[in-house]
Amino acid sequence: MTTTFLETEHPRAATGVFVEKSQSAPELAGLAAAPATRSEQARAALRTYTDNTRRPFEDLPASSDRGFAGKPDAARVAALATAEGMQGIVSEDGNDGVEDHHLVVLARVDDDGISHTVEVPFRTPAGQAPDATTVLDALLSDSAGLNDVDDVEEWADQYGYDMEGEAAQVTASYEAVLEQDAKLRAFLGEKHDEYLWGDQ
Rank of each mutant, 00 (worst) to 15 (best):
E194Q: 13
E194M: 09
R108I: 15
V177Y: 01
E154D: 06
V17S: 12
A186N: 07
L140G: 06
G113W: 02
V149G: 04
A25V: 08
A74I: 01
F5S: 10
A172Q: 04
E166T: 05
D110I: 10
Q128V: 12
G67S: 10
T8P: 08
V98K: 08
A176P: 02
A132R: 02
V152S: 00
T117A: 09
V135P: 08
R47P: 06
R55T: 15
S63M: 08
T3W: 02
S63I: 04
L146F: 12
A33Y: 07
A168E: 09
D51C: 12
T134S: 11
E190M: 05
S143E: 08
Y195L: 14
G70W: 00
A69H: 01
G88F: 04
H10V: 13
T8V: 13
L103R: 06
A29M: 02
R123S: 15
L6M: 15
E27K: 07
A62G: 12
D142G: 11
T133S: 08
R12Y: 01
D100T: 14
E40H: 05
D142E: 08
G30T: 03
G160P: 10
T134W: 07
Q128N: 06
N95T: 12
S22W: 02
V170W: 01
D96Y: 01
G165D: 08
D73L: 03
D51L: 14
P125I: 10
D65K: 04
A34K: 07
S173A: 15
A36H: 00
E92G: 15
A34C: 04
D157L: 14
N95V: 10
V135I: 05
E99L: 15
W155D: 01
A69N: 03
E164K: 12
P35H: 09
V118T: 08
A13S: 13
S63E: 10
N52P: 04
A107C: 12
H192A: 04
V170K: 02
Q200T: 08
G165F: 09
D150Q: 09
F187C: 05
D65R: 03
V177W: 00
F5I: 07
P35C: 14
Q180T: 12
R185N: 08
V104N: 06
D111G: 11
A25W: 03
E194G: 13
V120D: 02
L31Y: 15
L184I: 09
H192Q: 03
R54Q: 14
Y161E: 08
S39I: 01
G160D: 03
Q158H: 07
T82Q: 09
F122W: 07
E164T: 14
T82A: 13
V170D: 00
L188H: 04
Y174P: 00
H10D: 15
E190T: 10
K191Y: 07
Q41R: 09
